[in-house]
Nucleic acid binder design. Structure first.
Lengths: 107, 107
DNA sequence: ACTTACGGTAAGTGCTCACTTACCGCACTA
DNA sequence: TAGTGCGGTAAGTGAGCACTTACCGTAAGT
């Protein structure tokens, strides 16, 4: 299982996606993120752990608080996966088309 | 829940991702997809249903068989979500920075 | 030192969901 | 029209995982 899989697994949860949305723009503490959400603060903490492991967020200590920010690395990894996947698909498709043409010629 | 969420939920499962990988290049029947995988054919069928709903695959009948192909719409939707998300994040970040500068000026 | 706010983690629970087997209808062939 | 292969779906099961509450250590304020 590659790193891209880890990112996609992390993005596979709706709650984690809303957390990410709430981090657009400014860094937020865990409580700031949890306030206004339908789940408890520990739940958010656990999700943040997954997001951090997938490098979708980073955290830094600020006194007793802990500020979370979006991490570009996860997003870039996803884009790379996307591009790579699609490129491979097109390549394989093109190869198949060429093989098809060759078959017709030698028929 | 938007369409992009549907795509991300669909991509959140490892088995569904391997199905997509197996569809790169050429169309395959359900049995072709299932052969060589660690799950049963009905399991693959159920996953294909989710992937079709997310417009990540399309299917067409070919006699008694049913051929599945990658669908670009799901991939493009994901890319659009990615770009939109990141752009919004950067915009909000820039706004915050500008507000910060203004605060400093008026201090 | 006492208090208060923060947030990570342990422990337990419930539900979603990815799987299985069984069964069905359908398309083609002999 | 009997037989074969295909694949969708119903029904049931098991496990993972997203939650909860409870507890703990830490940092700053009074």
């Amino acid at each position: 299982m590659s790193y891209a899989d880890q990112v996609l697994d992390a993005l596979g949860d709706p709650t984690r996606r809303t957390i990410l949305k709430r981090l657009r723009g400014r860094a937020r503490s865990v409580r700031e993120i949890a306030d206004g959400m339908s789940v408890s603060r520990p739940a958010v903490s656990q999700h943040l752990k997954v997001l951090r492991a997938a490098r979708l967020v980073t955290d830094r200590a600020e006194g007793a608080r802990r500020l979370y920010t979006l991490d570009a690395r996860g997003i870039e990894a996803l884009r790379a996966w996307l591009d790579g996947f699609w490129e491979e698909a097109l390549d394989a498709f093109k190869d198949a088309a060429e093989r098809e043409t060759t078959t017709r010629r030698t028929r």
